[in-house]
Amino acid sequence: MDKNIEKWSTLKEVQEYLGVGRESILQWINKRNMPAYKVGRLWKFKLSEIDKWIRSGGASEESNTEDNEQA
């Protein structure tokens, strides 16, 4: 098997990787275009895409005024 192929990560693995809860991740998928893929009933992720999304400001508070209005 090619070692350059990145494995798919589960929702639980992404929670641990980012140190956030399940609900935060599901909200980011729905409201902030977090890169995620539905495989059957499960969400799957590529950590390299998550890193890129975070670096581009995807998870920053300022990027979503809707959340700030509710606070």
Rank of each mutant, 00 (worst) to 15 (best):
L47C: 03
K44A: 00
A71K: 14
I50K: 03
G40A: 03
V39G: 02
E23L: 09
L11W: 09
A36D: 06
G40L: 01
V20H: 03
E6V: 14
E13H: 07
E49V: 05
R22H: 07
E66C: 05
S24M: 13
W43E: 00
V14Y: 03
R22P: 00
I54V: 15
E16C: 06
E16M: 04
V14H: 03
T10L: 06
K38V: 02
K7Y: 07
F45P: 01
L18P: 09
E13N: 07
Q70W: 06
K52R: 14
D2I: 07
G40F: 01
S24K: 15
K38W: 01
W28K: 06
D2H: 13
E69F: 11
N33P: 00
S9C: 10
E23V: 12
R41V: 11
P35G: 10
M34F: 13
M34N: 08
E16F: 04
S63M: 05
G19L: 01
N30I: 07
R22V: 00
E61H: 04
M1R: 07
G21A: 07
E13R: 06
K44E: 01
S60T: 15
I25P: 02
K46N: 03
W53N: 09
W53M: 08
G21W: 02
R55C: 10
Y17S: 02
S24L: 12
S60L: 09
W43H: 10
I50N: 05
R55F: 08
I25N: 02
G57H: 08
M1S: 14
L26F: 14
R41M: 07
F45E: 00
Y17D: 00
S60Y: 05
K44T: 02
G21M: 03
W28S: 02
M34T: 07
E62D: 12
P35Y: 03
R22G: 00
E16S: 12
W28R: 07
N68T: 06
Q27P: 00
E62Q: 14
G57P: 13
T65C: 08
D67L: 07
E6L: 14
K7D: 03
R32W: 01
M34D: 09
N33L: 09
S63V: 06
K52I: 13
E6P: 12
M1A: 14
L11E: 10
A71F: 10
M34K: 10
S24C: 12
D67V: 05
Y37M: 11
N64S: 11
S24R: 15
K52A: 15
E16H: 08
I50F: 00
S48T: 12
G40Q: 01
R32P: 04
